[in-house]
Design a protein around this nucleic acid. Sequence first.
DNA 1: ACGTAATCTGGAATGAGTCAAGAAAACGAT
DNA 2: ATCGTTTTCTTGACTCATTCCAGATTACGT
Lengths: 158, 158
Amino acid sequence: MTPDASVPDTLRQRLRQAGLRVTAPRLAVLEWLAEHPHATADQVATGVRGQLGSVSTQAVYDVLGACARAELVRRIEPAGHPARFETRTGDNHHHLVCRRCGRTEDVDCAVGAAPCLEPSDGKGFAVDEAEVVFWGLCPDCLVASPTTAAHHHEEGRA
Amino acid sequence: MTPDASVPDTLRQRLRQAGLRVTAPRLAVLEWLAEHPHATADQVATGVRGQLGSVSTQAVYDVLGACARAELVRRIEPAGHPARFETRTGDNHHHLVCRRCGRTEDVDCAVGAAPCLEPSDGKGFAVDEAEVVFWGLCPDCLVASPTTAAHHHEEGRA
DNA sequence: ACGTAATCTGGAATGAGTCAAGAAAACGAT
DNA sequence: ATCGTTTTCTTGACTCATTCCAGATTACGT
């Protein structure tokens, strides 16, 4: 099946330029993900199924995996939460993650260009990425929080 | 059973001060962990069993969980690898993690005291921690690596 | 239009971690 | 020292996210 022609050509081109075949699931995943950043694999699957009718879970993981390898999508795996995906790649931006609900937001690198890119002592590692995650509670969970601001670590991570 | 008297009193005191009961599994976990930083729950269980004879997996998770809540141990969960634990808490230090084998090393905060502690735009989140992970290949995996330095992202993340 | 290699389907399996119910042990007061 | 209460440990089943497998399908280069 030649995939839906309504999808912007740019997506097709990006896939092709990355050496990936253009398939309906891939276009749908990329398109949906662009509109819903920081979605989980499950959310992507649901969203894509709403457009294509049915797509296997495996296909979703394959697409996400292939696109992540090709750097068309970026995978974030916040501790204690399922992985999340976004189409913003290339710029070394960081994330703000809610401990409670997992809501994730982008944060531009605080200290300019590449401040956090080199550890003080690399111990012989070939470092290729500095990942920064700001942990806290999102506005919604702050309001819904049973423990008032007085306590500091009453929560316990899920 | 009154726990083994050979364990340094400081461990007992730390547990008590944290409001936790002093039990053999807890002492053993803390003691073993102090000597083997960045161990996985499974490794902790194995190590502790070597000292106490037998300890349930659940007990190990409970101990680690309780101690993490009391900030006697810190839990690190590098994406794609099982959680790791360490007894160094309080100092906001960061980590160097090997993408391939998961080997984890401590890194002092590169930029001094609290440079990475505040995101440029918090979006209303109540941020309480800035986690920094430097990803790369450890010296051993660098040597064992099939792809020479020429390629850049041929690996694919587990 | 064809052949082939890459991709998708469906279902089973894995691994890390958690839940639940009851037995056991530590703490605090008597 | 002993008792009762409360926390902690044991055993075993279970969840969730993700991966593995074998076979059917499909996109792409010629």
